[in-house]
């Protein structure tokens, strides 16, 4: 049913992604699908990387490590944003389409009051992408 799973990851908080990563791995094994780990970096230095090139390399290394760990065909994909705090959700939607993914598995928080003011990334992606979105809480 699924051939390519996109998993947006924040390399700063990998510890908080364990459940989403396991879910994606289980789905991939079940449907014999590939996983594309996706991250949005900045052109300015960040806690994860000093520059876009380093960010790209770290994402590729993360994908490789996950591939080794799970035995799944994994790849890394990155995009650089001028203002990731705002543009993140939109970039995920575009990237998923570009990567020809057919499901997105992403970590999301429990909805709260703030979500009535600012749409959560998961909520935005589910509303604006044509394919399936699996939000892991």
């Amino acid at each position: 049913m699924y051939r390519k799973i996109m998993v947006p990851v924040d390399l700063t908080h990998i510890d908080k992604l364990e459940k989403a990563l396991s879910t994606a791995a289980d789905l991939a094994k079940h449907y014999d699908a590939k996983i594309c780990f996706f991250g949005v970096g900045t052109n300015t230095p960040s806690p994860v990387a000093h520059n876009p090139a380093e960010y790209d390399r770290k994402m590729a290394a993360f994908a490789q490590e996950q591939g080794k760990k799970t035995g799944i065909d994994c790849s890394g994909m990155t995009r650089i944003s001028h203002d990731p705090a705002i543009d993140l959700s939109e970039i995920i939607v575009h990237a998923a389409t570009e990567a020809k993914a057919d499901v997105i598995v992403m970590a999301s928080h429990v909805p709260g009051i703030a979500d009535h003011i600012f749409a959560s990334h998961g909520g935005y992606v589910a509303t604006h992408w044509d394919h399936s979105v699996f939000l892991v809480r």
């Binding site: 230095p45 806690p47 000093h50 090139a53 709260g112």
Partner: peptide
């Protein structure tokens, strides 16, 4: 340190961006 796009000469420092930051959830924010 990974060079930016092409040759450059980054500064090698032990400081990690955000290491002095307070990261918290206050209510919904």
């Amino acid at each position: 340190i990974e060079s930016p796009d092409g040759a450059a000469n980054p500064i090698d420092t032990d400081y990690e961006i955000g290491q002095d930051n307070i990261t918290k959830q206050i209510g919904p924010f």
